[in-house]
Amino acid sequence: MRIPHAHITLTVNGEPTEVAFAPYKTLLEVLREDLNLCGTKHGCELGECGACAVLLDGQPVLSCLVLGVECEGRRVTTVEGLASEGRLHPLQETFADLGAAQCGYCTPGILVTAKALLDEHPRPTRDQIRDALSGNLCRCTGYQQIFEAVEAAIAVEVPVADGRRSVLDTREHSARGPSEREDASEASGGGAPRALKNAASASGVGVGPHAK
C-alpha cells in the first residue's frame, strides 16, 4: 500500500527547504534519507541515546521522536549547520582539539545540545553542562573531555563592543593543535552581530544564531 507523500517547507540550517516524504517518517529519517543530511545519527530510534538530537526552533529535540510532518514552517539546525562563513563553531573547534570526539558517532547530537546550552547559558557551570548533556550517551570518552571542550568553548569568548561576550568567536583559542590551520584565521568578523543574536536568545526571544 502506498500512502501519499507529505510535503512541507521548513528552514534547515538557515536555508528555506521543501521536502516530500512518506508521512510516517520521523524528522531523523527525513533529514537523513530525504535531505541527505547524514550528519545526524541514530543509536536506538526510541529516544534513549541522544545521538539524533537536533535543534528545533533552537531547542534540542530527539529527531527520532519528532514526525517530519510536525516540522512545517519550523527551523531545524543539524550538525551540518553549526559552522558558518567557512568557520567551525567554537564547540566544533574545541571538541576536535580536546579529544571530545572519539568515534564521532554521538558527537553531532552532543554538539547541537551543547550549542543550545551555550545559547541559553553562555557561561554554564560543570553541573549545568552535565545536566544539559545527560540525555546524550557516549560510550567512548567517559564524558570528561566533552565537559572540558564545552568549557573551553566558553573560554574562547571574547569581549565585543557592548560589553557582552560572544561564544561564537575563536580568537586566542590556546588549545588549537599545530596541524589545524583553517577555521582559525578571522577572529573579529562575526563577533558583534552574533552577540546581538545571542542577546536576543538570552532574553527569551528564542532566536538562535542561525536564524534568518
Binding site: 550528519g39 567551525l88 566544533q92 571538541f95 576536535a96 582539539d97 579529544g99 564521532g104 558527537t107 596541524s179
Partner: peptide, 10 residues
C-alpha cells in the same frame, strides 16, 4: 587534534 577530528565534529 586528531587527523580525523574535523570530519567527526562536522
Amino acid at each position: 587534534r586528531r587527523v580525523d577530528g574535523r570530519a567527526k565534529v562536522t
